[in-house]
Simulated scan of single mutants.
Amino acid sequence: MYEKDGEKYFVVDSHTHYWDASPANWIAGQEQYAKGWIDCFHAYQSLGPPETHWSIEHFQKYSADDYTKDVFEDGHVDHAILQSTYLKDWYTTGFNDYDRNSEIAALNPGRMTVNGRWDPRDGDEGLKAFEEEHKKHHFKGVKLYTAEWKGDSRGWKLTDPEAYRYLEKTRELGITNVHLHKGPTVWPLDKDAFDVSDVDHAATDFPEINFIVEHVGLPRIEDFCFMATQEPNVYAGLSVVVGGLMFARPKFFAKVMGELLFWVGEDKITFGSDYGIWEPKWQVEGLVDWDYPNDDYSDYPRVTVDTKKKMLGLNAAKLYGIEVPAECQIADPAEPAAREDAELVAGSPA
Rank of each mutant, 00 (worst) to 15 (best):
K8Q: 11
F10D: 05
S14L: 14
S14A: 15
H15V: 07
H17R: 13
Y18M: 14
I27K: 15
G29V: 00
Q32C: 01
Q32M: 13
Y33D: 00
A34G: 12
F41P: 05
H42P: 11
H42K: 08
Y44T: 02
Y44N: 04
S55W: 11
I56M: 12
E57W: 08
K61T: 02
Y62V: 04
S63E: 07
D66K: 03
D66S: 11
Y67M: 03
K69N: 08
H76N: 14
H79N: 04
S84F: 01
T85L: 15
L87D: 06
W90R: 00
Y91D: 09
Y91S: 02
T93P: 06
N101K: 04
S102V: 06
S102N: 14
L107F: 00
N108A: 07
V114A: 13
D122V: 06
G123E: 09
D124I: 05
E125P: 01
L127E: 11
K128V: 11
K128F: 11
A129G: 07
A129W: 09
F130D: 08
E132W: 12
H134M: 11
F139Y: 15
G141M: 13
V142P: 07
L144V: 13
Y145E: 10
T146D: 03
E148P: 04
W149M: 09
D152I: 10
W156I: 02
A163I: 03
Y166P: 02
L173S: 07
L173W: 07
G174N: 06
P184K: 09
P188Y: 11
D190H: 13
K191A: 15
A202K: 00
A203N: 10
E208W: 00
H215A: 13
V216N: 10
L218K: 09
P219L: 06
P219S: 09
I221P: 04
Q230D: 09
A236P: 02
V241N: 05
V241Y: 08
V242N: 15
F247D: 14
R249Q: 14
P250L: 02
F253V: 03
V256A: 12
G258L: 05
E259F: 10
E259P: 03
L261Q: 02
G272E: 12
G272L: 13
D274S: 11
P280K: 07
Q283K: 03
Q283I: 04
V284R: 04
G286C: 08
V288Y: 03
D289S: 12
N294D: 15
P301Q: 04
V303E: 05
V305T: 15
K308I: 01
M311W: 05
A317D: 08
A317N: 03
G321R: 04
G321N: 10
E327Y: 00
Q329H: 07
Q329S: 10
A331F: 01
P333E: 15
A338N: 15
D341S: 11
E343R: 12
L344D: 09
